[in-house]
Amino acid sequence: MTNRFVCLIVALAITATIAVDVRADDAQFEQPVEITAGTKTFAYVSYPSPVLQDLNGDGKRELVIGDLWGRLQFAERASVNGKAEWEAVANMQTAEGKDIKFSNW
């Protein structure tokens, strides 16, 4: 796990600003599709909060899920028959190999 986060660079941390030319009143979306990671949905997560972030600097964004309890999980992106899918989740960990847990109480 430690190696996964080595050499994280600023250029890959740009989550704050993504430039596209759209307006909300023009925005139309397809019907929602529930995301699965591995074979599971996120039904077991309390208040799942998704974020896309390249955690390991390979140029591909992982799916990170925060929860009510202050934990973080992530899933690697996989491609199945050309369709984007997600591998099974793993817990995000500190450099010491402990699961990251933000105090929530």
Binding site: L8, I9, V10, L12, A13, T15, A16, Y47, S49, V51, Q53, V64, G66, D67, L68, W69, G70, L72, I100, F102, S103, N104, W105
Partner: peptide, 22 residues
């Protein structure tokens, strides 16, 4: 809890900023 990945202390490494129920 929503994580924000950002170089908060400008040391060249991504940090995680978030708020929690506390």
């Amino acid at each position: 809890m929503t994580p924000q990945f950002v170089d908060f202390n400008a040391d060249g490494f991504t940090d995680i900023v978030t708020g929690t129920f506390d």
